[in-house]
């Protein structure tokens, strides 16, 4: 129990974000109405994904330095968990967009960027499975992953900011500026973000530990 305090913290933080997010005061805005509360649940998915992809890149770099197969396994499971959060972010975003923007997938640079980024990471997972030899697979996957990360950042966070996007933070207005988030919302939002990141990291460690066990079992048999 000593080492699992952060897991409990993550659960408590998300649980309080559920209560605060549904009951707390929010700004009264046209079009958005109560759906503004989605900020507490849709956006943290992307923060969790970003954190997991970052963890993955760090372990890919570490793998290239050390050649330890554990680092490769850590990198791939971080991407696996990140893709899970990415899917949740995409689906929740589509539901939200359908109500507020009129269609689930409007032609928005951020949406299209996220689609390309998602495909890029799915390609990473497919590429890994296509290679048989363990060392070669780990090395190629690590190099691919290191290239994919900055491209994902550009597609999701830089290009949409340079053009007009339906998402906040584009076309001159700041992300999480005073228009779309007030000071009542901020504490709940950041609680939710940190809570989901902790849960994401937890799922990632579980997946890694399982993968490690499978790996050992395969080597014995």
């Amino acid at each position: 129990m000593r080492k699992s305090w952060w897991k409990i913290l993550g659960l408590v933080m998300v649980a309080s974000a559920i209560v605060g997010g549904l009951l707390g005061p929010v700004p009264v805005l046209p079009i958005l109405h109560e759906t503004i509360r989605n900020v507490y649940f849709h956006v943290p998915m992307w923060f969790a994904m970003l954190t997991l992809y970052l963890i993955s890149v760090i372990f890919s770099v570490k793998y290239l330095n050390s050649g330890k197969i554990e680092h490769d396994l850590l990198a791939v499971e971080a991407v696996n968990t990140g893709v899970m959060f990415c899917a949740m972010g995409l689906f929740t975003g589509m539901l939200w967009a359908n109500i507020t923007w009129g269609e689930p997938w409007p032609n928005d640079p951020k949406l299209n960027g996220s689609a390309i980024a998602t495909l890029m990471y799915l390609a990473y997972l497919v590429l890994r499975n296509a290679l048989e030899e363990e060392q070669k697979r780990a090395k190629i996957a690590a190099v691919y992953n290191i290239f994919a990360f900055p491209v994902m950042i550009v597609l999701l966070y830089i290009l949409p900011k340079m053009t007009d996007s339906l998402h906040p933070g584009s076309g001159g207005n700041g992300t999480f500026g005073d228009l779309d988030m007030n000071n009542h919302m901020r504490p709940v939002f950041y609680t939710s973000v940190i809570g989901w990141i902790l849960i994401g990291v937890w799922v990632f460690t579980l997946r890694y530990r399982l993968r490690l066990l499978e790996n050992k079992k395969n080597q014995i048999s």
């Binding site: 699992s4 897991k7 579980l206 530990r209």
Partner: peptide
């Protein structure tokens, strides 16, 4: 999640 953690 906790139960899964313990089984692992």
């Amino acid at each position: 999640l906790f139960l899964l953690d313990r089984r692992i």
